[in-house]
Structure formats: structure tokens, C-alpha cells
Simulated scan of single mutants.
Amino acid sequence: MSLAAAVVMLVMIWSLVFFILLPLRLQTQGESGKVEEGTHSSAPEVHHLKKKALITTAVALVIWGIVVAVILLDVFAISDFDIFHRMGPTGGFH
């Protein structure tokens, strides 16, 4: 695995985890009772972005470490996922 591939994988995992955490514990303007003129009541009042970014970084690094370890240690091979038995013993397609 190249360094560029590792960085791209980290960015992708970080983005996915961030979008999963983004709506959690979100307090809207409607819930707080202070709706600004010209905005929807579902607009965020308290979003905790800094805290969510830090949690995302920690979770993403753990997931990324596991994925990189699985890739570098060759835990799985493509032939392990060949459910239609199309690959020969050497790994090539028949």
C-alpha cells in the first residue's frame, strides 16, 4: 500500500465517520425556541462541530489502523470472496 493510498483511505474513512456523527446531539433553533429571522426552525443552534471533529478523528484513526493492518498482513485474499468459483488455484480467472 502506497502512502497516497493510505492517506486517501484515511480521508474517506474520516469523512464517512464525520457524516455519521454530524446529526447526533444536534440542537435545532426550533428546539431552543430562538429561531432567527430568515432561517428554518430546523437550522442548528448548537452543533458541537469541534467536539465531533475530534471524536471523528479518534474513531477514524482506529478504523483506519484496523483496515491498514488487514491489508498489510494479507488477512484476506480476493479468492476468499470468490462466491461463484471463477478464479483458478493461482488466482487468475479461467
Results as ranks from 00 to 15, higher is better:
13 I>R: 01
49 L>G: 01
58 A>V: 02
28 T>E: 11
53 A>Y: 00
24 L>N: 09
29 Q>H: 07
25 R>L: 13
49 L>K: 05
15 S>Y: 09
46 V>L: 11
38 G>W: 01
33 G>L: 09
23 P>L: 04
34 K>Y: 15
7 V>C: 13
48 H>W: 02
45 E>M: 12
14 W>D: 03
28 T>G: 07
11 V>R: 07
44 P>N: 05
31 E>S: 13
10 L>F: 15
49 L>Q: 05
41 S>G: 14
12 M>T: 11
7 V>G: 12
37 E>C: 05
54 L>Q: 03
36 E>R: 08
47 H>L: 14
31 E>A: 14
11 V>P: 08
24 L>I: 11
38 G>M: 02
47 H>Q: 08
4 A>C: 05
15 S>C: 12
56 T>M: 01
7 V>P: 02
41 S>V: 06
2 S>G: 15
56 T>A: 03
38 G>K: 01
46 V>T: 11
42 S>T: 14
52 K>S: 00
51 K>H: 03
39 T>E: 10
31 E>G: 04
42 S>G: 14
9 M>S: 14
17 V>M: 00
4 A>V: 13
10 L>E: 05
25 R>H: 12
56 T>R: 00
49 L>I: 03
48 H>N: 10
13 I>M: 07
11 V>N: 04
38 G>H: 03
18 F>H: 01
24 L>R: 10
3 L>G: 10
35 V>K: 02
49 L>T: 05
58 A>E: 01
15 S>E: 06
24 L>C: 05
50 K>H: 07
48 H>S: 03
15 S>D: 08
7 V>T: 15
26 L>G: 03
35 V>Y: 03
14 W>T: 03
7 V>A: 12
32 S>Y: 10
14 W>F: 14
34 K>E: 15
33 G>N: 09
41 S>E: 13
21 L>D: 00
4 A>S: 14
38 G>E: 03
33 G>R: 07
13 I>E: 02
10 L>Q: 10
56 T>Y: 00
17 V>R: 00
11 V>D: 09
7 V>I: 15
44 P>F: 01
34 K>H: 15
13 I>H: 06
48 H>V: 02
20 I>S: 08
3 L>R: 14
56 T>E: 00
42 S>W: 06
30 G>V: 06
31 E>W: 10
4 A>Y: 14
18 F>K: 00
18 F>G: 01
47 H>N: 12
29 Q>N: 06
19 F>H: 14
34 K>W: 12
57 T>P: 00
57 T>G: 12
54 L>E: 05
26 L>C: 07
15 S>L: 08
7 V>L: 15
17 V>P: 00
32 S>R: 14
17 V>D: 00
55 I>T: 00
26 L>P: 01
24 L>K: 10
19 F>K: 13
7 V>S: 13
22 L>Y: 09
46 V>E: 14
57 T>D: 01
25 R>P: 03
16 L>N: 06
33 G>V: 07
28 T>D: 10
7 V>D: 11
39 T>G: 04
27 Q>H: 13
46 V>H: 11
46 V>R: 13
19 F>G: 03
21 L>T: 01
40 H>S: 08
33 G>M: 10
